[in-house]
Amino acid sequence: MQRDTTDPGTSSGRDADIGASIVARGMTKIYGSGADAHHALGPIDLDIKPGEFVSLIGPSGCGKSTTMLLVSGLEPVSGGSVEVDGKPLTAPITEVGIVFQDHLLLEFRTAMKNVMLQQEIRGLDKAVLEDRARMLFERLDLVGAENRYPWQLSGGMRQRVSIARALVHDPSMLLMDEPFGALDAITRTQIRHDLEMLWLDTSKTVLFITHSIEEAVGLSDRVLVMSKGPGRIVEEIAIDLPRPRPAHLGEYPDFAKYANRIYDIFQKLGIYKFT
């Protein structure tokens, strides 16, 4: 995609074809204070390169979601620092799209209007954003769903609309918190592929939180394995598999190797207690 830096359709005018970099040093999060204080995360370091697809995997309560909220500036860090594109975070960044496990669509807006909320709130060019929304609806297999309300869509389609909403303003970073966690296995495999294809075309930086080893290995350039109490990164695994990756990851002999490594870490940490 050729685009100059004054594109009225992007949220900052920067060239969003290059993803953002995320650098964190000694990042810590403590919720509450005094006796009620809960040390949720860190200190952890992160070095995420522009356009990289990084997954965070680990047991519930290991601070995956907290990490996501800290690097987007939606929650302040309790200690350490975060820089996005070399700039220290002081406020929530807007060069970002967020997808949660629940679609969080507005029930009173149609699928298209839900996506166009980005345009309305950001005050971006309507025609440009509508074009991009239509392109995303096509890429995400949502054609025909434009004027439907969320309750008229299946769970998978709702989540696809949610992804379109997170991408329509062409952000440099995509944050996904267990986005496919509530979907059935068949839908999950297809939507994983559709996300990978979209990402390959735009090279946004993606931080992807998951409980699924298959998703983490199937999508990522790098998997960060986390443990809890407080949340820490215990291992970093670079996934060197060709893209786009197939539906059945077992086609790659190396897939089993990566998956086994993660299982071993979980076993070693006592997350899995298989005997």
Binding site: S72, L74, P92, F100, L104, I121, R122
Partner: peptide
């Protein structure tokens, strides 16, 4: 969590109230 999403859009309190 929807307010996380509106804040990431740069929405102020009034916009989040009016739109969501």
């Amino acid at each position: 969590r929807l307010y996380y999403i509106t804040r990431s859009m740069g929405a102020n309190t009034w916009q989040a109230f009016r739109h969501v």
